[in-house]
Simulated assay, not measured.
Amino acid sequence: MKDYTVQHKKAWEYNAYDFWVKTVGTPKERAIEDKENPIEMLKQYADYFDSYEGVKVANICGSCGKKAIPLALLGAEVTVFDISEENKRYAIEVADEAGVHIDFEVCDIMEINLQKYTEYFDVVFMEGGILHYFHDINAFMDVMKGLLKPGGKMICSDFHPFTKISDMLRLEQPTMSYFSTDIFEAEMAHARFYDAEIRKQMPKCHYRKYTISEIINSIIENGFTLKRFDEHPSWDDGRLPGEFTAIAKKEYLK
């Protein structure tokens, strides 16, 4: 595990379980919400799934299970890959309360057990802004391709690269040149919700943000066929792009 990944693990295990309870409810409360309308809990991502029943989904950096559990309720066989034991604890408790099963592998994404999971999944799914945690996007995309069966689909939704030059999502992270390739240190995503004294104690993360062309080219150059690229408005200002979703297929060998 690389030094920066160790740091990310510390950040994402800092009071994470209590954070989820405080912000999205106890596992029982969250499970009730998930069960009421799992499609609604998937939000815009539901549009990118062709089906759910029996579909094997790898939820990359799936955090507290906020999308994994709705997928499981719809019949998908979900495996979450995430670096945080605290996230796992919350997700498993919510799944138990919801009456569904999810698998949860606590690991460095770049060290996923490919002996076990090579060409195992029908769908690889990520959302919520994760690409900036990985300093080599080509290596990351190579792992994603390895997880997918031939004919499988990658749903990659992330923060729009314009966040490099504007804090349009109010994440309170530094801005820079759009074309910067620098790795920079900044607070983890939840730090802004804590009091100043606690924020000072929280471990920081080391990020690398990418341009649109870097993201698209990494998908293409790692053997995917890009099928669709959608841009979504910022939740703070609808005039600006806030997120994107790339849909890519791993083609069958000819």
Rank of each mutant, 00 (worst) to 15 (best):
Y207N: 05
T23C: 09
F179Q: 10
A16F: 07
D108K: 03
R199M: 08
F244H: 12
D182Y: 02
D108C: 05
Y52K: 10
Y17E: 10
V94G: 05
A98Q: 13
H8E: 14
K209Q: 15
F244M: 08
H190K: 07
A46V: 07
I60Y: 04
Q115N: 08
A68N: 06
D50C: 07
S63V: 04
H232F: 14
V80G: 12
E185A: 00
I130G: 04
E214G: 10
F244R: 06
N87A: 11
M176F: 03
E13D: 15
N37V: 12
A76L: 05
K2N: 06
E197I: 11
E85Y: 10
N222K: 14
I39A: 03
P174W: 01
D103K: 14
Q173S: 05
I219F: 05
K9A: 13
D182Q: 05
E97K: 15
I109N: 05
P233Q: 15
K2W: 00
V80F: 03
F179M: 12
M202I: 13
V57M: 12
I60H: 10
Q44H: 03
L114D: 07
S157C: 06
E214V: 10
E85R: 02
N222F: 05
Y194G: 02
P241D: 00
L42H: 04
P174V: 01
K209T: 15
E221V: 08
M1N: 09
T211K: 03
E29P: 10
S234N: 13
V78R: 07
D136G: 04
I69C: 12
E187P: 00
I183W: 00
P70A: 08
K227W: 08
